[in-house]
Amino acid sequence: MRRLADLVLPVLVAVLLLGFWEWKVAHDAIPAYVLPAPSAILRALADNFPSLMASLWTTLTVTLLAFAAATIAALALAILFSESRAAQRTLYPYAVVIQVTPVVAIAPFILLWIGYDRVTVAETIIAVVVAFFPILSNATLGLRSADFNLIDLMRLYGASRWQILWRVRLPTALPALLAGMKTAGGLALIGAVVAEFVAGSGTATGLAWRIIESTNRLDIATAFAALALLVLVGLAIFHGLSLVEYLLLRRWHESAITRR
């Protein structure tokens, strides 16, 4: 019953909002280049379906590639930090610098250095920079939160650093790592969109570029269709990671357990 309500109520809200939107556009005769009706957006999606799917594929590839690279790099650095205070003291300030630097401001340089002929690589790097930090900070915290007594016990049985990392520190860090990854998944998409905006027309081919390009042609319905697809990508990433989190933590972690 609860689960049904969880699904029905949001859908009901969507139906009401879209219905009002459709009615308002028709009633006030709002021009399509200002605000297209939902039906017009749907028609634009259908008319441009193959090319929009190609753009979706481009953006999705950049986002997922950047997310994977950010996860691997941030986790590797977090492991280095947890094993060596000196490394953390030396490198953490620079990780923070990368985090606080507005990515829009450095994106043109990255594009310039990587080259417009390899725009996908440049976009991926920009998205990595945006997605990197939440994974790093969460994973570092998680790796450092391991039970000292458990680590002592491992030492008592002659465990190596590697065994302590693999058997105690990493599992301890898993909930925090997954929380960081959930944030980073959304940020990777934002990074990909920003990169496409900065790269501009002629080189980029993803959904964000389609928004700019369609808007320039006053084809606002197609721009909205591309935007809707971006939202779907974001939702898919978030819910996909939530599912992974649930599957990995459901047996043992308080966050994944529903109380009876």
């Binding site: 039970d147 007594n149 458990l150 058997r167 047996r251």
Partner: peptide, 9 residues
């Protein structure tokens, strides 16, 4: 130990 010190996972 005083605490069970088990691996919760």
């Amino acid at each position: 130990f005083q605490e069970p010190t088990l691996m919760p996972w």
